[in-house]
Simulated scan of single mutants.
Amino acid sequence: MKLSTKGRYGVRAMFDLALHQGDGPTPLRSIAERQNISEHYLEQLIANLRKEGLVNSVRGAHGGYLLSKLPAEITIGDIIKVLEGPIAPVDCVSDKVEEGKCENITDCVVRMIWERMKDSIDEVLDEITLEDLRQEAINAKQNGSQHGYMYHI
């Protein structure tokens, strides 16, 4: 299972907003430059995040984007699920499983593997918040990390 650039770049953009929270609205151009992401592509990702209520937009000369909640209230799972959809290694354990899609769903022994795998992934993604990442970056910078922070996912 592999995340697409939507999920990876979306987490990086949201992390960037969390790092600059309190500085006022952040223009997309600034995020795109700092994170080395195409501004056009970032617009598409932020539009989905805004539609789902994870970011707010501010119009005008000093406009940009802000997190809609505190970084401690936004999990990585929230971001990934908006941009990637349900995280499941196979369709039969997806949150949006279609009835009748698999005739063996009730008797499938290996489904247990896929369920446990999905549950483990969900647990990790849902327990890590943007605040956790922000604190990790601050700690790395204070401990003399040469680059300040690493955020490649």
Rank of each mutant, 00 (worst) to 15 (best):
L42Y: 00
A13H: 01
A88Q: 11
G144W: 10
H40R: 15
M150C: 08
L83E: 01
D119A: 15
D122T: 05
E115C: 07
Y41K: 05
H147E: 11
N36W: 11
G77I: 01
I79E: 03
E123P: 02
E39R: 09
L125A: 03
D16G: 04
T5Q: 11
S94E: 01
R8M: 09
N48T: 08
T75Q: 06
G85P: 02
G64K: 03
F15N: 02
I87R: 07
R50I: 00
K118S: 04
P89L: 00
V55E: 02
K69D: 06
V11G: 02
R29Q: 09
K69P: 03
I105Q: 03
A140V: 01
L66T: 08
V90R: 04
Q21A: 04
V90D: 00
N139I: 15
Y151Q: 07
K141M: 10
T26R: 06
R8G: 05
A47Q: 12
G100T: 04
Y65G: 02
Y65S: 08
M14L: 15
C108G: 10
I37S: 02
H20L: 09
V11T: 04
A137V: 08
E98N: 06
G64W: 00
Q142C: 01
V110K: 12
V97G: 01
L130V: 09
E127P: 02
L125R: 02
R12Q: 14
D132F: 13
S120K: 06
S57Q: 08
I79D: 05
S68Q: 07
I76L: 07
E131D: 15
D23Q: 15
Q44L: 07
E43C: 12
K2C: 08
A47K: 13
G144F: 10
S94T: 01
C102H: 12
P89T: 08
G64Q: 00
Q44W: 05
I37K: 00
R111E: 01
D119Y: 05
